[in-house]
Amino acid sequence: RAAQGRAYGNLGNTHYLLGSFMEATAFHKERLAIAKEFGDKAAERRAYSNLGNAHIFLGRFDVAAEYYKKTLQLSRQLKDQAVEAQACYSLGNTYTLLQDYERAAEYHLRHLLIAQELADRVGEGRACWSLGNAYVSMGSPAQALTFAKKHLEISQEIGDRN
């Protein structure tokens, strides 16, 4: 049964990489059920991330957000800050797709704080870029400028000419 869970996960990933998102979703749901059966929180967390990602490409941003929230919740339980940061970043982007810029900014800010804590300059730069965009959309150009400047500073530091 445990091997079956891993096989479902691998099949889900393979369909995802082939761009078959419906099939990927079906396999990841099976994987999720087995992870729950075993109380395997790490596998459950992975399944939620994979399900969130697949729903982005199915255009179901609302469903993706719910899966990413489950990922976030479990990453905190598992005390995995890198995954927590990634979940916040995914949620920020998902709420941008849902055009809920305030909530997007909330998650991008949470991502920024964790990236700073982890001294992840690349992550910090991405968070600043996203926050600049969110504040522009919210009609707050002064705050957007602060983050755009920070984004420039970090990009120069890490040599990201793009």
Partner: peptide, 26 residues
């Protein structure tokens, strides 16, 4: 409005490009 929308899409599109190849392996 259109310009703002394009700016918005830029950072999200970059994320989606990365996401396409992002799988949580077993």
């Amino acid at each position: 409005g259109q310009r703002l929308h394009l700016m918005q899409v830029d950072s999200v599109q970059r994320w989606m490009e990365d996401l396409k190849l992002m799988t949580e392996c077993e």
